[in-house]
Design a protein around this nucleic acid. Sequence first.
DNA 1: AAGTGTATGTTGTAATTCCAACAGAAAGGT
DNA 2: ACCTTTCTGTTGGAATTACAACATACACTT
Lengths: 225, 225
Amino acid sequence: MEDFLSVLSRYALFQGVAPEEIQAILPCLGSKTRSVSKGGPVFLEGEPARWVGVLLTGMAQVVQDDYYGNRSVLAILQPGDTFGEAFSCAGIATMPVSVMALTDCEILLLDCSRVMTTCSHSCHFHTQLIQNLLKGMALKNLAFTEKIRHMSKKTTREKLLSYLLQQAKKRGAAAFTIPYDRQGLADYLGVERSAMSAELSKLKKAGLLDTKGSWFCLKDTRRDD
Amino acid sequence: MEDFLSVLSRYALFQGVAPEEIQAILPCLGSKTRSVSKGGPVFLEGEPARWVGVLLTGMAQVVQDDYYGNRSVLAILQPGDTFGEAFSCAGIATMPVSVMALTDCEILLLDCSRVMTTCSHSCHFHTQLIQNLLKGMALKNLAFTEKIRHMSKKTTREKLLSYLLQQAKKRGAAAFTIPYDRQGLADYLGVERSAMSAELSKLKKAGLLDTKGSWFCLKDTRRDD
DNA sequence: AAGTGTATGTTGTAATTCCAACAGAAAGGT
DNA sequence: ACCTTTCTGTTGGAATTACAACATACACTT
C-alpha cells in the first residue's frame, strides 16, 4: 500500500503531491480501487459519468459503439493515464463510451464532483489536484488541436509536412526524432502507411528532408507545397 | 458597466455567478478589458501564456503559422467564447498561436493562475468559476474527440455516416436536424462539399436516409458499410 | 551465422477524391 | 414580381489514395 502511494505520486494527476499527502486526501475524494480481469468492463456506456479514473496497472482501451453497433477504439490507456474526466467534468449524465480491460487491470476511481470541489476543510493539496486536472485536460486539448490541424490537410504530403514542420518548430531545430514508427505516424495522421512511405521517399529525393527511422531533418528550402 | 456584468453572467465561464458576484470577484482575477481594432492582434504568438480571454464583442480568429510562415485558421471566436485557457492551464511558457481581431473587438482578460487558484479569502464563487473552466475544457475535449473520430474514417461516405449515426444516437431518434449547412458540414468533416453532396444523393437513392436542408432521417437497414 | 519475425520501401491497379464548371433551388432585398 | 445572391446537386477529367503484393532492411533468437 505504501508502494502504491509512491507510484501514484509520480502520475500526472498527483504531480506535486507527496505520498503521505495523497493518503490524506484520498478519503476526501471518495476513492476506491477496482480490479478488472482481462476483457472485462471498467465502465460500460450508459453508466452515470461520475468518476475520474486512473489506470494503475495493466492496459485498457476506450471504445464506442455507433448506432448500428459497430465498435471503434478511441484510445489505448497505459498505467498513469487519467480517463473519464472529460465526461464527468462536462456535466453529461451518462458515459458515451465504454472502457474495457485489455489485460488484468487495477484502477483507482475518484468521485469527480469531489475532485472538482474543494472540500469543506479546504486541504491545500486539493488545489494542486484541481490544477493537475485542469492541466491534464488542457494538454489533451492541445494534443487534439494539433492532430486535427494535421488531419485537416488534404493530401498525405501536406499532412506529413504539417506534422514535421510543427515538430521542427517545437524543438527549434531542423533535426529531431519523433515518438512514432512509420505505422504509428500513419495512424496518427490518418493516412495509409505505404502511401506515406512513398511520400517520404519523394520528399527525400526532392531534397526537402532526410530521415532514418524516427529521425528527421528538414532542409530549409522555403517551398510552400 | 452594469450591462457588461449581466452580459458576462450569461457566458459559459461565468454561468451560475450573478452580476454582482462577478463584479466582486473580477478584482481577484487580475481582470482587464482591452479593445482591439479590426485586423489587430489580441495575442501574438510567443507572448507569455498567462491569460484566459473572453470575447465580449466582435469576431476574432485563432491562427497559427508553421515553420515556413504559412498561416492556418484554427478557430473562429464569437462573443461569449473563452480562448487561450488551454495554453495557460497547460503550463506552457508561450502562446503557440496568435489571436487576431476580424472586426473591432472588446476582450476581457483574466490572469489564468489567479483563476486556477482559489484566492486567500476563498470566495465561494471562485469554486464555481473553476468548475466552469473545467467544464468548458471538458466540453471542448468531447467535441474534439468526436470530430477526430469522424475525420479518421477513410471515405466521405464513412465520415458522413459516422457523424449522422452519432447524431441519431445522441438524440435517440432517427430524425434530427444538424447545426450546419452543406458547406459547414463538409468543413467540419474535412471533406469536399460537392463530393459530400454526391454521396448524400447516393445514400438517398440507396434508401439509407432522407434529407432536406439541415434535416436528416436515417432508415434503419443495418448495413455496415 | 543462420533463421525468424517485424518494419519499411516500392510498385501497379482499382477506387476515391479533388477541382472546376455549371444549372437549378432557395433565400433575401427592392 | 423581379433581381440578386447564396446554397445545393451534378458531372467529367485530373490527381490522389487505398489496397494488395512483394522485396529489402533490420532486430532478435538460437
